[in-house]
Design a protein around this nucleic acid. Structure first.
Lengths: 235, 235
DNA sequence: ATATCTATCTATAACGA
DNA sequence: TTCGTTATAGATAGATA
């Protein structure tokens, strides 16, 4: 850039270094903002100058949110162990950190629950909407997975019972033959027949809800919880 | 860069956006590294793509150190307002309390974002689903309210300008009558005509988004970087 | 997605005020 | 330190493989 090729090496001249820093810093911030807008990315940029001056940029000015996202993404567990080792340090600082963190979490959570939306910009609202849409999709997938599992369990159980019933009724027939007393014949037409049909229907519905995924709004299928499921599902 | 000037607006074409993201991301990382080396600065850069992929750079690969430095720097100010009044008492107890509270909040939040669903029962999932459905409804209401407000503001402004333009052109006509010099007639065809059309389009889009809920990501709004952001970000 | 190429558009080093 | 200017080095959009 400019006169002469750039060498990737610390600029020794203090003045030049400061000037270059100032210029490149604005360039960097601009680029960060551009990629954020053009490509719809979440960007957090923190720059400390040699002299310790801080300069930052973050998408939607949501530095804390992005840093939290980062922490969650890269090492969820680590942070739980990192704070206590600074025991001799200023507790008050740690305390303040935690407290403001809680505040942030609470605010975020309220927003996630559709509350206190007045302070949000249009863009933030759209991000939130997208976030929740995705979340709902995941939740519905998981829900359907659970339902399908329970259905196949029930079907398996059904089959076992049917077999058992068959063998039992066979056994009874044998007994009737061997002891030909004039008893009435027991009509063995168990009710499980009906259950099987029910399960098949439910199963198909669940599959549709699970796989189609086209328009999430359309599949709202206010899933009514079948009574039979309540019993078995809760672990 | 390249053919045609860059417009600071979300790239709508998904492919182009992804490609541009990829290219600019490496450019941004390079710039971050350069300023870090050339100017001896501490830099931390975090980028999440639209699809949630993480990409990071940090001076000396010391992301944690820099983020802590950042937190220390930015919390120092808050500390003054939050801590001094609780000087005695067992810090460790308070601290533990806060920490467990944070963990709870984080778990809840992850669930709200559709993550870590495996530990939830079917019933809990259904509650969550309903919660998010309601939240989404509120958010969409608020979003549309905002959009409609901005639309009516724009329309009002339009009308004002139209009136103003009308009176101005009337004034000009008067002047031309009174001073009948052989000037060319100024074609008064103000541009507000176009503005009106634009607003109507926006309005319709908003209504569609409002009722049909198509693809929320499509309606991103071009955000121009305010000048104050480029320079002097931090004081 | 990744790489290369090219025409253009940007960023910026050096310098001066 | 901070502009403004200018000559160049760099970055990158679009096309293509």
């Amino acid at each position: 850039m400019g006169r002469g090729r750039v060498t990737l090496k610390r600029i020794e001249n203090k003045i030049n270094r400061q000037v270059t820093f100032s210029k490149r810093r604005s360039g960097l911030l601009k680029k960060a903002h551009e990629i954020s807008v053009l490509c719809d990315a979440d960007v957090a940029l923190i720059v400390f100058s040699t002299k310790g001056k801080l300069c930052e940029y973050s998408t939607d000015s949501a530095m804390e949110r992005i840093l939290e996202r980062y922490e969650r993404y890269s090492y969820t567990e680590k942070q739980l162990n990192t704070t206590h080792h600074e025991t001799q340090g200023s507790w008050s600082l740690e305390y303040a950190k935690l407290k403001s963190r809680i505040e942030l979490l609470q605010k975020t959570q309220r927003n996630l629950m559709g509350e206190e939306l007045d302070s949000l910009s249009l863009k933030e609202l759209q991000n939130l909407e997208q976030q929740l849409d995705t979340a709902l999709k995941h939740i519905r997938l998981r829900k359907n997975q659970l339902m399908l599992e329970s259905i196949s369990q029930l079907q398996k159980k059904d089959k076992e019972m049917q077999d058992q019933n068959n063998s039992l009724s066979k056994q009874i027939k044998e007994m009737e033959k061997e002891i030909p007393i004039h008893h009435q014949k027991h009509e063995i037409k168990p009710s499980f027949q009906l259950d099987i049909l029910d399960n098949r229907n439910i199963c198909e519905e669940a599959r549709m809800d699970c796989e189609v995924e086209k328009n999430p709004r359309q599949n709202q299928i206010a899933t009514v919880m079948p009574p039979w499921m309540v019993q078995h599902m809760n672990k």
